[in-house]
Every structure is written in C-alpha cells, then in structure tokens.
Nucleic acid binder design. Structure first.
Lengths: 67, 67
DNA sequence: GCAAAATGTCAAGTGCGCTTTCCGTAAAAA
DNA sequence: TTTTTACGGAAAGCGCACTTGACATTTTGC
C-alpha cells in the first residue's frame, strides 16, 4: 500500500511532529507511515483522512499483491 | 466504529463462510467484524470495499469517541 | 561553516487483528 | 427425535501497529 502522506503534509507546510500531535500519535508513527514501514490501522486512516478533508481512498492507494 | 457488513452480506444472500473465502480470511474474522468485536485492518477494509463495489467510508462508519 | 531543527531509524514493550481449534446453540431438514 | 447447517464465542499463539527513548543523519538558517 502506498500513501500520499508526505506530499500532503508538506503541502500544508507542517512538520511530522505537528501532524503527529494533531492526530494524537507519535512522531515515529508518522515517519514510519511516510516511509512505508507499515500500514496505518483503519482508525488512524480515518483520522488522517478527516484531518486532510479527503477520503481514505484518495490518500492510501491499495495495491493487490499484498504480501 | 460501526459497519454494515452483516447487512451487505445478507443483501447478497451469502453465508459468512462464503464471504470469508472470497476475502481470504477465516469465518471467525467475518463473525467478529459483524459483531463489532474488533476493527478490520486497513488491508482487509480495502478488500471488503472492493468486494462490495463501495468505498470504505460507505461500509465502515467512523465514530469519534470510541476507546 | 556551524548550530539547531527536522527527519531517519533502531530496540524493546504493549495491545490488537487474525488464525486455528474447539464447543455451544438454534433452526431446519430428514 | 436426530442430524445438519449457520452462527456465536472463547483460548492460545503469532505478527504487526504503535509507543517511549535514544541516537545518527540530513536539512535549514544565520
């Protein structure tokens, strides 16, 4: 799964830490999502989508081949 | 988080086991989601949405308060 | 060039999503 | 009544999402 987190965050001109605070998660979680180390839980995905005023599908790109 | 899984599954007239097979998860996972015992991972949410031809937001209803 | 700010990343710990296995119950079929 | 079908639910185990903490590296601004 790919995502547009880094792109969207930079478009807002905020730091990882500020986004983390707004979403009530740790800075490491934001960094890990941006770098694709793991996928968000669905609750966090909803929070992120709401924060950016977009749908989950617009931010997270589902890719078949999973693993 | 609430979801419309049971409603959508019944509208399709299929059993929990058939849905589980289609989504490549166990029957217990479907039952647990329908009864709200836990939330799906975002990968499973994407699979479910694709299976029903709907968006994640149309199937899973995000609710603030939770735990 | 230097210091501070922002990000990358590792390690250890907690909790949950999902699995397999097993048993209980209700309703329909026989 | 007995058997079969569909669902509910619990227990144990595994891996991943997320945390705190610490340190390394890159980027920014003076």
């Amino acid at each position: 799964m790919k995502n547009r987190l880094e792109e969207l965050r930079k478009a807002k001109g905020i730091r990882q830490e500020a986004l983390a605070d707004a979403l009530e998660v740790s800075r490491q979680t934001i960094g890990s999502l941006e770098n694709g180390r793991y996928n968000p839980s669905i609750m966090l995905a909803f929070k992120i989508a709401r924060y950016f005023g977009m749908s989950i599908e617009e931010i997270f790109i589902y890719e078949e081949e999973d693993k």
